[in-house]
C-alpha cells in the first residue's frame, strides 16, 4: 500500500505562499491575482483538457472554472489550493460532460488521417496530441498535468488525492502506451 510521505518544509512553504497569494487576491489585490494566475492557469488548462479532450472545449471549461474559483473565493479554507481548484474543475467538467455528451472515445486510428510520409512537424504534433487524448482518463490526466501543466509528481499526487507512487506508475504506463502508439516517430515498432 502506498503511503504519502509527509510534506517537506519547502513544500509547506510553497503551499503557504500560494495561500497567502490567494488571500491577497480575495482582498482585491490585482498584482497578487496576476501572480497566482500565472501559477495555476497552465495546470488547470491541462486538467480541463484531460476532461474535454478538445482544446476549444478545454478553454471554455477553463474560463468557466476560473470564474467559479473567483466567485467562490471566500469559501476556500486555505488548505490545498490546487486541489480545491481541481475539485471545482472536476465538478464543472462532470456536469458539463453529462450535458454535452461530446467526449466519446475516438474510434478512428490517428494514423488513418495522416496521408503523407515523412510527416510535417505540425502533423507530428497533431498526432502526438491525439494520441495523448486517446489515452484512458487516469493516464491522460497524469501525462497532461506532468507535461502540459508542468506539475511535479508531488503536486499531481496532492491535487488528485493519490499517492506519488501511483502517479509514477500511471506516468510509466501512459508513456508505454504512447511509445507503442507513436512507435514509428520514435523508432519503436508498433
Amino acid at each position: 500500500m502506498d503511503v504519502i510521505a509527509g510534506p517537506t518544509l519547502s513544500h509547506q512553504t510553497e503551499t503557504q505562499r500560494l495561500n497567502q497569494l490567494f488571500r491577497r487576491v480575495a482582498d482585491g489585490d490585482e498584482r497578487a491575482f496576476r501572480e497566482l494566475y500565472e501559477e495555476v492557469s497552465r495546470p488547470l488548462l491541462a486538467y480541463c483538457l484531460s476532461f474535454t479532450r478538445d482544446m476549444d472545449d478545454a478553454r471554455d471549461l477553463f474560463q468557466h472554472t476560473m470564474a467559479a474559483v473567483f466567485e467562490h473565493r471566500n469559501r476556500y479554507r486555505y488548505e490545498n489550493l490546487m486541489g480545491w481548484i481541481f475539485t471545482i474543475a472536476r465538478n464543472a467538467g462532470r456536469s458539463w460532460e453529462h450535458k454535452a455528451k461530446r467526449f466519446e472515445t475516438l474510434d478512428t486510428d490517428p494514423w488513418d488521417e495522416i496521408e503523407t510520409d515523412p510527416l510535417e512537424a505540425s502533423e507530428t504534433t497533431e498526432l502526438v496530441q491525439r494520441s495523448i487524448l486517446d489515452l484512458p482518463e487516469e493516464f491522460r490526466t497524469v501525462i497532461l498535468l506532468r507535461y502540459f501543466g508542468e506539475m511535479s509528481i508531488r503536486d499531481i499526487a496532492e491535487s488528485e488525492g493519490i499517492t506519488e507512487s501511483l502517479v509514477k506508475v500511471r506516468l510509466f504506463r501512459a508513456r508505454e502506451r504512447l511509445s507503442v502508439a507513436l512507435g514509428p516517430l520514435i523508432g519503436h515498432s508498433s
Binding site: 482544446m55 507530428t124 504534433t125 502526438v128 496530441q129 495523448i132 502540459f148 516517430l185
Partner: peptide, 12 residues
C-alpha cells in the same frame, strides 16, 4: 518521446 510530448504541449 519526451521531446514529442513537450512539442505537443507547446503547441497547445
Amino acid at each position: 518521446l519526451d521531446d514529442l510530448l513537450r512539442d505537443a504541449s507547446a503547441d497547445w
